[in-house]
Write a protein that binds this DNA or RNA. Sequence first.
RNA 1: GCGCGAUUAGCUCAGCGGUAGAGCACUACAUUGACAUUGUAGGGGUCACUGGUUCAAUCCCAGUAUCGCGCACCA
Length: 967
Amino acid sequence: MLEKSFNPAEAEKRLYEAWESSGVFKPRAAKPTDTKADNYSIVIPPPNVTGSLHMGHALNNTLQDILVRFNRMRGKAVLWQPGTDHAGIATQMVVERKMAAEGGPQRKDMSREDFEARVWEWKAESGGNITQQLRRLGASCDWSREKFTLGDPTNPDDKMVEAVTKVFVEMYEQGLIYRDKRLVNWDPKFQTAISDLEVETKTVDGHYWHLRYPLADGVTYEHPITDEDGKVTGHETRGYIVVATSRPETMLGDTGVAVHPDDERYAGLVGKEVILPIVNRRIPIISDDYADPEKGSGAVKITPAHDFNDYDVGKRAGHTPINLLDESAHVLALEIIPEEYHGKSVKEARKMVVAAFDAAGLLQETEDLKIEQPVGDRSGVVIEPMLTDQWFVDAKTLAVDAIEAVDNGKTKFVPANWKKTYDNWMHDIQPWCISRQLWWGHQVPVWYGPKKIGSESKMLPALNNSMMFCCHSEDELKEAAAQYYSELTDRIVKIEIYTLDKLNKKIVGHEAGGADRDAAFPMYEFSGDELIISLYRDPDVLDTWFSSGLWPFSTLGWPENTEELERFYPGSVLVTAFDIIFFWVARMMMQGIHFMGEVPFKDVYIHALVLDEKGQKMSKSKGNVVNPLELIDTYGADALRFTMAAMAAQGRNVRLSTQRIEGYRNFGTKLWNAARFAEMNGCVSQADFDPSSCTQSVNQWIVSEAVTTVKDVTKFIEDYRFDAAADAAYKFAWGTYCDWYLELIKPIMGGEDGAAKTETQAATAWALDQILKLLHPFMPFITEELWANTAPSRDSKLIITAWPDLGDELINVDAADDINWLVRLISAIRSVRSEMNVPPSKKAPLLMLADALDPRLSKFADNLERMARVDGVEAASEAPKGALQTVVDGVGFAIPLEGLIDMDAEKARLSKEIAKVNAEIEKIDKKLGNEAFMAKAPEKVVSLQNERRAAFSAELEQLSEALANLA
RNA sequence: GCGCGAUUAGCUCAGCGGUAGAGCACUACAUUGACAUUGUAGGGGUCACUGGUUCAAUCCCAGUAUCGCGCACCA
């Protein structure tokens, strides 16, 4: 016996554990008949291991689970590959914060190895949160295959690290990864480089300072004076040139002033020099297209080491960039900079520079402006362009195939308009900076050693000119190094590999760190007959997205040629939000195509962001974050999932409202009660029930409706129309099955006809089964629970029950017509009764205004009596005085309820109806009277209009008669 | 500056070249009959604006307005 209601809190846990332990989340075994199309796979967008489930995850994973459960039921071998992302910066930050709170030794006090151990420890404690939360949502991932982007050090079979190393080494050898000294975005808080994508721009209040740079050697020129309209009204003699900047402190590192080659104002100054105030350096005035005569004064200061555009200008002009700042964005103690600036922060230095210009009478103007400031997406601090040695991926080259794959449809975006976003970015892609100055991540598999061997032992530093060995392992490294150095010496070569921790940054190449390198490390030493070579590993780790980009194949065991790789690559679809198209989707495309020779997934379904009820992005600072776990506690996972699906219309954001979740929770209850009704009436699923064998119209009708619904829901899910699929299933379950079918069968259930009752019991159970199957991908828990309890003898779980496949031959058009007519008739009677305020308790016979009674009326008399509250059906030539009247399909009906009806109100109601119908007829007549319409509109449209015309005029006739009757 | 999207009922949103839809909210009625986490009925829309294409436009095209988003630039 079913309980009075469904208890999600109790059932969800029990059902999930039963599923997971029974192994149904694993892909079914391969069959000899399987083709590639019989396999279905999705890789989960790996949530940060530090994360906890937010609404974005809830939406993302609900949609994936719907696809996964749907395809599993359709008999495919389904793999939903789960796992988490090591999330370099985020995780290192979380652990460091925790260590700071605990007050023990901090990262900088520890060795790299100890810190890494500490993070692993943290992961063991807290890293499983998010995966537990995904289970609560009902995600049917194959947890036995769970992966971590940083690998599993305790499992020798885990290939995640090997995959990353192999990719790096091969790309290095192919020239697709290279080390370069370039300007990168530097995060002074985390003291690491970050990629372009990790930089956000924020609008803040700022200033433009217009600074005068005095011309050297007493040079002057005539500067045009303009009026408001830009007309030149005169000239003044200037011994200086004006530059404007929002970052005056960078002038300490200026290497020149640029003007446009066509700018007549400054034409005479090109080649001359200015004396850079404060530092008293002479720097040249150069001509460069970059200078825009329309902006500011037309002259622009050039600081190659701290501005991306200036860097290019400086390069063209052959200037040597001057690095001003250290890792934490404080001014370096350089000889060319006055001492009082040393060690000052950017902000302090700015104040000092402005004050100095002001004092020297060189501050022409201070302008208040909104300026766009680059900030780190994780740290929130101002990002400084810094000139450092970093590792880069040649994304431009990789992008070529990735663009083509989408162009020729190997990978399709859904909705399709995201292709444009992808294309725009891919076509303008910049080198991808992949090195991070962190400890938590995949360490760059490159070791440095001396390039040449001199006659004396040599100590660090000399790494800028060092030999790089990029190798899969230390064994391979030793071999490669031994070979290299043997060719340089007659001595016995001995290779020593050092791991560096605390001193990492000082040793390898980050010049932003300044010159204080530790010289205590040998590069090579002579010892008797031996040459001892010291090799040091690059301390940097790789951008997290570098390893996430391999996720579609690394999780399947690559570089081993595994069975899973064969079966499940490429993935069927990737489901993700648009905000990581660049971060992740683009990188997976590039790396997947390059290493697997095939796109990583066939479809990319891009879903919306989840916003709050007001359409605001959820954020902790706004305090409008809704925790999906709390919603699951309150309403159950099924309600949350159904809401997510129902709101996931393509191309829209999802505004979450608890009201809506409540509504879908009610839907679950409705379903539960329908099942209880079925149970009470002895409707038990019959294994051998044949829906085509039904003889009762109502059963034939529900079968026909089920056929249509199954077809719709199936098509909608295939097309990623989750909202439409949910809607179709919802309408069938509630609107068709509960509201009409269950009501219509009540007379049979309480009737005498045993055969009809037996058939109807089986049909009711069958239709409920179809509903449970259709709803299972959306509401897995309640449907599985009902599946088990409505037919206890069933041995298989719903989750692996075949998706319904009903043929059109099951559609019975006559039965459907009859029942649909009955539904219209009942609705019409209910409507007039309600409008005329007839109490439900008042009953009267239903009179059909015709010579003979429509046989359907007597056939469905029981239904009419019960649902339309009439008392028998009869034919009558005309409506008696004071009867309630209505028209269905051009036939008039009357219910004699004299005395209960306000005749004036009835007259008004009928007149209103007549007016409505008249208006329609008029519209149609206008169309039919239009020659152009008759000549050019398709025949189908014309005949449809004629049919409508006939129906309306029959209705009009009946209504007019009814009105006349009242008079 | 480039690009994308939106504008339909009070709210949140579907939809479609020919007949305007849902959920919620609202109003009235029903009071326990599977279900009050309910049932029945009802009111409510110049489909942002202006042109164009078409026999026919809420839908297609162009433009305008407003809102939102992404990218780039920013001396």
